[in-house]
């Protein structure tokens, strides 16, 4: 019989494995001040990779303050999603660049 205390650990490990097994990298581009796709969906554990194709610096900044990713000119930036929810984000330098990320559990 398995000691009671190991059950949650096994459950957590199984969960972690299943998450990592399915973790994907989702690419979102910023080009000519347009975020594409403007609406993206991902899962907790996935990585978002923003590709800045502009000669300008951009940011991917969550409106709720949860994250703020700097994207220097012609560089990429990544973020591992930790919490579910629908998050609106924008570029702090060019607030007319807006997009939404839906993170599923």
């Amino acid at each position: 019989m398995m000691p009671r205390s190991t059950l949650p650990i096994v459950a957590a490990l199984t969960l972690a494995m299943s998450v990592s097994a399915h973790a994907a990298t989702i690419q979102i581009t910023m080009e000519n001040l347009v975020i594409a796709p403007a609406q993206a969906t991902a899962k907790v554990g996935d990585t978002i990779e923003w590709i800045n194709k502009d000669v300008l610096a951009h940011t991917a900044t969550a409106r709720n303050g949860e994250w703020d990713v700097m994207l220097p000119p012609k560089k990429n930036g990544t973020l591992v999603l930790k919490k579910p929810g629908t998050i609106e984000y924008y570029c702090r330098f060019h607030p007319n660049m807006k997009a939404t990320l839906t993170v599923q559990p």
């Binding site: 001040l33 347009v34 660049m97």
Partner: peptide
């Protein structure tokens, strides 16, 4: 110029903030 317009519009909003 079209890209420039988007940049300037962004700056305008940034300046407003």
């Amino acid at each position: 110029l079209q890209t420039g317009l988007k940049i300037f519009q962004g700056h305008e909003q940034h300046a407003e903030h």
